[in-house]
Design a protein around this nucleic acid. Structure first.
Length: 452
DNA sequence: ATGCGAATAT
DNA sequence: AATATTCGCA
């Protein structure tokens, strides 16, 4: 498929060659990598890492792009808003999904107006991409007042009103509104592709009878666990390394590309820095009375990056570790002595009443590498490991066989990486700043015209 | 990471 | 009293 003797371009009928494609992806490598493949198919690629910028380009430059490929999970705008904008222009869209296929994606797909492609993407996956330029929609027969018919389409497919209001004609959006659109996003549910892992296809998936909905009928309590609105998918920055996040990834090894997708749960949140802050916060507050919410506040890390829930979970493991250590020190006393279940007692008096004989309490199945192996696994004083997931081993499932040296796909990636020109050259890379400038100008113009 | 029940807060 | 949040456990 990547055989030089059969150039990729040969898969594209002559009339479809040279089509323009807008590529929106926040990971530099993917942007570069996909651009390269698309170019080999003869397409002209404009790439950007900024969904809002992309949206404004789409609005401004009618007919500029024949096709849009956009990462589904962009940090600065949610997929439904993005889709709404594109629908205005009747351009075929293919979303690139790199994580779990979640509910929001499902909704987007259910509109029947876009397709999905699962990363990692092989050159072969794009062989028939050109067919999408045939795409044309019922309401694209111009005369229909498209705002109306479009709403009907979306509505019929079950999009909610709260989302509907985001589907403004883009001309009406001010810059600030663009920002607002960034609000995201629902939950992750099962991966519909999990059963046939490794098969990445243009998805012809039909709406499932959502089991996920069945669950939450119970109490009406606005429980922390299912306030979808507030839950935000963590966005892991791969490209820049700041005080928190992981160091930047060097793509000097093709495996890196596959590793980006190997685990559903992306990179580990608990970097050493974060864990350190966590520990400090806990100790300031008092080992036994520290509560997740307060810890999070003390840590001084913005919500989007770390949720109370995550802190709570971390705290739980942390305490479990402590318990284990203590148990192993005085190995004949299996008595448990952590923060007791009743929080209000914690500061007032010691919990007398019943000193629980652990009714079966955790025979610590957690490995306790206090004395040995300490040099193999990074541990802190409490023994919590914070190995980042990309350091870990071969990938299970996800795209079996693709990451094997000797495979065409693998070789392609390898070649691609070795060719620094490929990787560093973005012939049509959009400068987000420039686009933002345009957007700003546009906004001023619109404001001037609209208000008076 | 989350579903769930219990303790707390408003 | 009723509902919303926060927590801890599994």
């Amino acid at each position: 498929m990547i055989d030089e003797s059969i150039p990729l371009i040969n898969h594209v009928p002559s009339f479809a060659r040279g089509f323009t494609i807008l590529l929106v992806h926040d990971v530099k490598f993917s942007r570069s990598y996909l651009s390269r493949i698309l170019e080999l198919y003869s397409f002209k690629v404009t790439a950007t890492n900024n969904a809002s910028a992309a949206a404004s380009m789409i609005c401004r430059q009618e007919g500029m792009f024949k096709l849009i490929m956009a990462k589904a999970d962009m940090p600065d705008m949610d997929i439904l808003s993005f889709l709404g904008v594109i629908l205005e222009k009747d351009i075929p869209v293919i979303f690139i999904n790199s994580g779990v296929f979640d509910d929001v994606n499902r909704k987007a797909l259910a509109t029947g107006l876009c397709y999905f492609l699962q990363e990692p993407i092989s050159p072969n996956d794009l062989k028939y991409l050109w067919q999408h330029v045939y795409h044309s929609r019922a309401y694209s027969t111009k005369n229909t007042q498209n705002a109306g018919s479009q709403s009907m389409v979306l509505h019929a497919k079950g999009l909610q009103n709260t989302q509907m209001k985001q589907y403004l004609p883009c001309e009406q959006l001010t810059n600030t509104q663009w920002q607002v659109l960034g609000a995201k996003r629902g939950r992750n549910d099962g991966d519909i592709w999990s059963q046939q892992k490794g098969k990445r296809t243009l998805c012809d998936y039909t709406m499932p009878t959502t089991q996920c909905m069945g669950r939450k009928a119970y109490g009406k309590r606005n429980h922390d666990d299912y306030v979808g609105k507030r839950k935000q998918k963590r966005y892991v920055v791969l490209e820049k390394s700041d005080s928190l996040g992981p160091a930047k990834i060097n793509f000097n090894n093709p495996n890196q590309y596959f590793r980006m997708f190997e685990s559903k749960n992306r990179l580990s949140v608990w970097t050493p820095e974060l864990h350190k802050k966590f520990i400090e916060a806990v100790q300031e507050l008092g080992e036994n009375i520290a509560r997740p919410k307060q810890i999070l506040v003390r840590m001084n890390v913005g919500e989007p990056y770390l949720t109370v829930r995550q802190v709570a979970s971390h705290l739980q493991k942390y305490r479990l570790r402590l318990k284990c250590e203590e148990n192993s020190r005085n190995s004949n006393l299996p008595k448990v002595r952590t923060s007791l279940s009743s929080r209000h007692k914690a500061n007032s008096s010691s919990s007398e009443g019943s000193t629980f004989e652990t009714k079966g309490l955790p025979a610590p199945k957690v490995f306790l590498n206090v004395n040995h192996n300490q040099d193999q696994i990074p541990v802190n004083s409490v023994g919590m490991e914070f190995t980042a997931s990309w350091d870990s081993h071969p990938m299970p499932g996800a795209s079996v066989g693709l990451n094997i040296p000797g495979t065409q796909f693998y070789d392609f990636v390898k070649t691609f990486l070795e060719d620094s020109d490929c990787f560093n050259l973005y012939k049509y890379e959009t400068d987000p700043a420039a686009v933002d400038q345009c957007t700003e100008m546009l906004r001023k113009v619109l404001e001037g015209r609209g208000s008076s």
